[in-house]
């Protein structure tokens, strides 16, 4: 069953996904697999359908055709909140934080699925609720805030923070779900060099540290980081999958080189 999955087993399988908006075919027959424990990158030029694919995995979009299989279970019909409860968490390309709330409250919301307080116990705020709040506060402080080095901003309003820190808080909120599969949609976009290094380190940490061991799907334009971090890469172009393999295989794949030709200057590697 779910808990007995081993490293390298198939965590997510995407089968023949078709998704179109009116006449625009955003995805036409995309299939790939993500193994437990790996960092699996999805790359491709702008408009290739990467974000649409992530939205299908996370449940914000319902593909017209195809299957999403998570831990051997078909999850096509599940709503995003149900998929979150199964351990699928994500960040967004365009930051989707609760910008009027503090950093701490944003991350607390990431703990939602692990809390038990209902209307009645919440209204009374009796022992159980109070204890739960303290427990989760400790978890957030020790596991998330410590990891991401955001001690000094925990009580700041998120909307007031610089972009790079907002990206970091969004990662913290996604991690607070204690996910098994973490979808990162362009976590490095818009960051400066130093921030890119930090973020790449955090991603590697949550993937490799015994405590986390989170499987990641990484959508990124920064080829240097992608090739460095990934265990496997899927390339999309105009909604179609044109390549799938290890970073080395992808780098020498003529199809991929062709797809990227002409747009080369857009994808300057920082490595």
């Amino acid at each position: 069953m779910a808990e007995t999955m081993k490293e390298g087993d198939e965590l997510l399988k995407v089968e023949n996904i078709h998704m179109s908006f009116g006449k625009v075919a955003a995805l036409s027959g995309v299939s790939f697999k993500v193994r437990k424990g790996e960092i699996h990158s999805i790359i491709g030029p702008n408009g290739a359908g990467k974000t649409v694919m992530m939205n299908c995995i996370n449940g914000l979009y319902r593909p017209q055709r195809g299957n999403i299989i998570y831990k051997g279970q078909k999850i096509n019909h599940l709503k995003p909140y149900q998929r979150a409860k199964l351990g699928i968490s994500r960040t967004f390309q365009k930051i989707e934080l609760f910008s009027g709330m503090t950093v701490l409250d944003n991350i607390r919301l990431g703990r939602h699925i692990h809390m038990k307080t209902g209307i009645l116990s919440g209204a009374l705020y009796v022992g159980k609720t109070s204890r739960e709040e303290i427990e989760h506060r400790a978890y957030i402080e020790e596991e998330i805030i410590d990891l991401l080095e955001i001690e000094s901003i925990r009580d700041k309003i998120v909307g007031m923070l610089p972009y790079g820190l907002q990206k970091r808080v969004e990662l913290g909120r996604a991690l607070a779900l204690d996910p098994e599969l973490l979808i990162l949609d362009e976590p490095l976009a818009g960051l400066n060099l130093e921030e890119v290094e930090d973020m790449a380190r955090f991603i590697l940490d949550v993937n490799e540290e015994e405590r986390w061991r989170v499987t990641c799907i990484l959508v990124e334009h920064d080829m240097g980081v992608v090739m460095d971090l990934s265990d496997s890469v899927t390339v999309l172009n105009f909604g179609e999958m044109i390549a799938d393999g290890t970073p080395e295989e992808i780098q020498s794949n003529p199809e991929v080189i062709k797809a990227y030709l002409g747009a080369e200057d857009l994808y300057v590697s920082r490595a």
Binding site: K79, E96, L97, M101, R108, H112, I119, G122, L177
Partner: peptide, 26 residues
């Protein structure tokens, strides 16, 4: 009390960004 525990935070999350709220499992 509700506002400082799970239900209240979920309400404010829905108010501020219902898509993000949904992806967090609310």
């Amino acid at each position: 009390n509700l506002l400082r525990s799970k239900p209240g935070r979920a309400w404010m999350a829905i108010r501020d960004n219902d898509i993000a709220a949904e992806t967090l499992g609310i």
